[in-house]
Design a protein around this nucleic acid. Structure first.
Lengths: 154, 154
DNA sequence: TTATTAATTTATAACGATTACAATATAATA
DNA sequence: TATTATATTGTAATCGTTATAAATTAATAA
């Protein structure tokens, strides 16, 4: 089984409620739903994608709330920013060490298992975050020849 | 000697002119100077930093030219985008495989030597670009205690 | 050299993602 | 229930960047 397809336990809203509480956050319905979407769907959505998805079931939701909530989650360090495309913030609630690969044809962002990473020359530095971002084509799009490599640079 | 201090050959303007020509680019003075700045100074500057630096010797330079030229260099794949901070494009004319570390106190971006990187689960994917971005503190700022770790998230 | 054409640069407007702000609504506490 | 704090909203503002059209400069042809 490919790691991308690996099943992870699905979080219930109650799980999310507890997790937010543990991090000192009150669990409003928007916070619950936004975090639940991130942790269960794992599609690394943009703020806009989260907004479009959640307003279907909660029409009163405002884009500002999505942005505010994501910023709050980042500050509390319960989600991470995925910076694999310029001017396109994506968000990931899985904090374990892994990389990201964006398919330049379909736009999807895949999780990536990192076997080993060895750096040198970092004596005296302190590291808070490590991000490994790849860009290329997923097998589907590669087969469908959906992309012209000589096209625009992201 | 630390890798950050390693000396690289300095490019003359004539070197740059030839390099641009090899990549099908006419060598205007702005293109020469922008590329020369990137390749010789290796500070991974933003467009604004390039503009501020070069307008000192070339007062007619416009920000639009800097943006246009950087975009052109990216399209021709003679520079790479360094995406270590959201909403802050930085540029690097060194294309050999290396990582970047941004010091969150002084804002400088350091080059990083990568000994090994082993990934798995990429069967069927095609990879165009790999980016390794770290965030933390450089030795100088660490010693000077210039940063409050509980501060804002980038 | 001059005329013509193409490429580059400029100033400015427009853009898209995000943040700031002030007003309103909701929730917690007294 | 009254009071206070927190969360959410709609909208304006901001920031980095891109688009556009005019002006400048360079290359080529006459």
């Amino acid at each position: 089984m490919d790691h991308q397809e690996k099943k992870q336990k699905r979080w219930s809203l109650e799980d999310v409620r507890q997790y937010l509480a543990e991090h000192g956050l009150r669990a409003s319905i928007y916070r619950l739903k936004i975090f639940e979407f991130l942790i269960n769907e794992r599609t690394h959505p943009t703020a806009e994608e989260i907004y479009n998805r959640l307003k279907k079931e909660m029409p009163a939701l405002s884009p500002a709330t999505v942005y505010n909530t994501l910023r709050l989650f980042l500050e509390k360090k319960i989600i991470q920013l995925v910076n694999v495309e310029k001017n396109e913030g994506r968000y990931d609630a899985t904090l374990s060490w892994h990389g990201h690969l964006k398919c330049l044809a379909c736009g999807r962002v895949f999780d990536l298992h990192i076997e080993t990473l060895k750096l040198s020359g970092l004596e005296g530095f302190e590291i808070f975050e490590k991000h490994l971002n790849l860009r290329g084509l997923c097998p589907e799009c590669l087969k469908a020849k959906k992309y012209d490599k000589e096209g625009k640079h992201g």
